[in-house]
Design a protein around this nucleic acid. Structure first.
Length: 378
DNA sequence: TCTGGGGTCCTAGGACCC
DNA sequence: TCTGGGGTCCTAGGACCC
């Protein structure tokens, strides 16, 4: 039997925003602290908490007020995305010393295909070297998962934090994965996990038991179910495409208002501020868009999105702005709003627009149109 | 204790075309 | 006149992740 098992690392920077905060302000090292909140007041939620705070039950997505009621002396550090971007870039540049096949999972995590590098060095030694290197060079602690697929590597890096290294080979799946609570499974979130628990599916091992298949299929599509099963059994993707997230697929901005607002003009102004930020990014990325959308949340937290697609891709500000206005005018009926946003999607690099001088200007064909024209030529 | 902001991917119905 | 199946795109909403 030929051995074509890949060696995938998942590297997760532990409490990344906290690590960055300490780099900037070393006195935080010995504090119980968290990062988050938004611009004004004590409104908002935590993005992350350091391990001392986590021990007290303080965690990300928790409101600042809640956290302070648990521990009044908690230090809350404001977000600093430029700082995170800077150290995230250091992180990815560092990984490039080991492989070209790197897939960002987010600002603070990466999948990296270490198959080639492992021909010369044991994967465990490589992991230790990367972990120590990131800490010594940038004071960034990380956990590393080593496995034959992306999913298993991701699950593995979660098992030992901070500064852990965990291997999950195929033969380890039953022992290391099956006993885990179902909510630990990547992809199972706060909606699905209680439903599974109600069905008596407590662990990942329960999830793939044949006798539970029918029950699970009553609450999720067969394709979702089958893809989870493949993930668990180590049959999912081991392919790292470094370009997968090289370009954004959508650009959006939104903001939560300081108080609910019901004045048409004031809300529209805010939507346009959000649009302007998204538009700036569109231009910076040298892209064009086909779909524009607005987003409103009412005081009961009900979300509404409305979108419109142009026939052609565009980066014409007036056109985009007019459609955003139109969407708002058609869909706003005077109810108080607590969040407003705008976004652009169906993006394409401007240089990839196909220009057909015979028929249209700046027209990119849909696949169907393309097929049609091909037929005519034949 | 009232709950951020930026994304990705999936689903499902309807329009439309062949 | 009535019937079909396949495919793509649009739109809205939802789950999930960090």
């Amino acid at each position: 039997m030929k051995n074509n098992v890949k060696i995938i690392f998942h590297i997760d920077l532990n409490a990344f925003f906290c690590s960055c905060a300490i780099i900037k302000e070393p006195y935080l090292k010995d504090k119980v602290f968290a990062v988050g909140g938004s611009s004004t007041m004590r409104r908002g939620v935590l993005s992350t908490a350091n391990y001392a705070a986590r021990k007290l039950g303080i965690h990300s997505a928790m409101s600042i007020n809640d956290a302070l009621s648990i521990y009044p002396k908690l230090v809350v550090v404001p977000l600093d995305f430029r700082l995170y971007r800077k150290y995230s870039n250091h992180f990815f540049d560092f990984l490039k010393n080991y492989s070209d096949l790197i897939l960002p999972g987010s600002i603070d995590e990466a999948y990296i295909d270490m198959t080639k590098a492992s021909e010369h060095k044991h994967p465990l030694d490589l992991a230790k070297e990367i972990q120590q290197g990131l800490y010594d060079t940038y004071k960034l602690p990380c956990s590393i998962g080593i496995a034959p697929t992306l999913f298993l590597a991701k699950m593995a890096s979660d098992l030992k934090k901070p500064m852990g290294i965990t291997v999950i080979r195929k033969k380890d799946i039953v022992q290391k994965l099956f006993p885990l609570p179902i909510k630990e499974m990547f992809g199972i979130g706060k909606k699905t996990y209680p439903k599974l628990m109600d069905m008596g599916i407590m662990t990942i091992g329960d999830f793939i038991k044949d006798e539970n298949k029918k029950k699970i299929l009553s609450m999720m599509s067969e394709s979702s179910y089958l893809s989870y099963v493949d993930h668990i059994l180590g049959r999912s993707s081991d392919d790292i495409d470094p370009n997968q997230y090289a370009l954004p697929k959508s650009i959006s901005n939104e903001t939560t208002l300081n108080y609910p607002m019901d004045q048409f003009d004031a809300i529209l102004d805010i939507i346009k501020e959000q649009l302007d930020q998204s538009y700036k990014r569109l231009i910076k990325e040298e892209m064009v868009c086909k779909t524009v959308s607005i987003k409103l949340k009412d005081t009961n937290f009900n979300l509404m999105t409305r979108s419109f697609s142009f026939n052609d891709y565009t980066d014409d500000y007036e056109k985009i702005n007019d459609q955003i206005t139109d969407l708002f005018e058609k869909n706003y009926h005077g109810e108080p709003v607590r969040l407003a946003g705008a976004g652009l999607s169906q993006l394409l690099l401007k240089k990839d627009l196909k220009i057909d001088i015979n028929l249209f200007n700046y027209q990119t064909f849909t696949k169907r149109e393309e097929a049609l024209y091909k037929k005519k030529d034949d």
